[in-house]
Design a binder for these strands. Structure first.
Lengths: 158, 158
DNA sequence: TATTGTTATACTCTATAACTATA
DNA sequence: TATAGTTATAGAGTATAACAATA
């Protein structure tokens, strides 16, 4: 016997059922992400930023002098894919890239004032957009949600 | 003044900071998803299934006779991208595709017994994998998490 | 004229392998 | 020998436009 009892046949415009998928946390995670993503994408696109370039810029601002390899590790992305992102951020003068003197294989990434201003503006728009999308959630529920999400993440890395 | 105060310079192996990104729900959502996804991917790959083909198969099982266009709508994907998925599920005899008599533009998708068995097996493995990954969360917390995620989604569609 | 399924195509995101320069 | 950055490339995943069949 299969997991669920099939709903009545569905040739017409009945409401559809995804109960089995809903029982999986990963599915619900993805669905919620799909709801949030277009807003974030649009907010960043207005500043010619992608999610990944915004994340990099933000990390560089918070961690001045960070090396690309550590940045890639932190954002869980491949160093090779980071190169083009850094190239673009540098060419737009949002960050600077300086070779380290102690280890000339490595580079120090630092945000420019222009980079910080752009990040701040984009970040405010994203936070504002999230406030609209998350309006039905109380402040306490949002905190709780983030706390639960972080719990998943920290459990995996330990 | 920028949003956060930069941490002390970070040329060495200091711990990195992503406080600003962490203040965004979308970022935390994505990070948690990244933790869950490899397990799901591996479980499905063992049965030559992708996330999208598993989702389709599951929806077809729960909604026998569903048409591709409704399936695409439900899973928020393009009809054009669904075609190859359905082709593969059919060629593997996990579903059948039957032209409707009342409207010959549409097709009825129905899962075979083989499809149901495969889905059930894969679903059990995913649920089992999730139980391991979500071990640090109590049953109540998991319910709460799913509830909050669904709240985001249903708010967006209203 | 609108809708369903389909094909072809392009674009983004991510993953892998190999190279270079430095250590 | 190992590591950091880089290049090239391939593979997913997703999005768009156009078409035939049907309503």
């Amino acid at each position: 016997m299969t997991i669920e009892r099939a709903v009545t046949d569905n040739e017409q415009g009945d409401s559809l059922d995804d109960a089995v998928l809903r029982s999986m946390v990963g599915y619900n995670l993805k669905r919620a992400y799909i709801v949030m993503h277009p807003m974030v994408h649009a907010a960043l696109a207005a500043h010619d930023l992608r999610v990944v370039s915004f994340s990099c810029l933000s990390m560089i601002i918070t961690n001045p002098g960070i090396a690309p390899s550590r940045l890639a590790e932190m954002l869980r992305m491949e160093r090779s894919n980071l190169v083009v992102v850094i190239d673009e951020l540098e060419s737009r003068e949002l960050i600077t890239r300086k070779q380290m003197k102690t280890d000339r294989r490595r580079y120090e990434l630092t945000a420019t004032m222009r980079g910080r201003r752009l990040r701040d503006k984009a970040a405010r728009e994203i936070v504002s957009g999230e406030q609209k999308l998350l309006a039905p959630l109380s402040a306490e529920e949002r905190t709780q949600l983030v706390s639960l999400l972080n719990k998943i993440e920290s459990a995996a890395s330990s």
